[in-house]
Simulated scan of single mutants.
Amino acid sequence: MADRDPDTIKAEIDEARDQLALTVDSLASRANPRRLADDLKAGVVRFVKRPPVAITLAGVGVLVLVVTVRRARR
């Protein structure tokens, strides 16, 4: 093994530590439950706002309303 300057070794260790800290921070941010829930909610809202989905949900709502009213009259 070649002799290495202690200052160079220390600088490499510091650089590796900083890189590891950035990686850990990035992973913590991605795994944040609040962020995951917000992303899921935004995705569902985007999906539901699509015209075919919105029309289908409105139709299902009307069907449920009609069935409920008919049962209530009996």
Rank of each mutant, 00 (worst) to 15 (best):
A28Q: 07
S26A: 08
E15V: 05
L20I: 07
A31G: 12
I55N: 13
L57E: 00
P6C: 03
R74D: 10
R34E: 13
A37D: 02
V24A: 05
G43R: 10
A28R: 14
R46W: 07
R35H: 03
A21R: 15
G59Q: 08
A37L: 04
R30K: 15
P52R: 08
P6T: 15
N32P: 02
V44Q: 01
R35C: 01
V44N: 06
L63F: 07
M1S: 08
S29I: 00
P52Q: 03
S29L: 04
V69C: 13
A72G: 15
G43Y: 05
V48Q: 09
D3Q: 14
R74A: 07
L63W: 13
R70K: 13
A16I: 02
L20D: 00
V67Y: 04
D25Y: 03
R74P: 06
D14G: 05
L20V: 01
V48I: 13
D14L: 12
R35E: 08
L20N: 03
L65E: 07
D18W: 15
V24G: 03
K10N: 10
R4M: 09
A11V: 02
T8K: 10
V48D: 00
L40C: 10
E15L: 14
V62T: 08
A28G: 10
P33V: 02
A72S: 15
G61S: 07
R34D: 08
D39H: 06
G43Q: 02
I55T: 08
D38P: 01
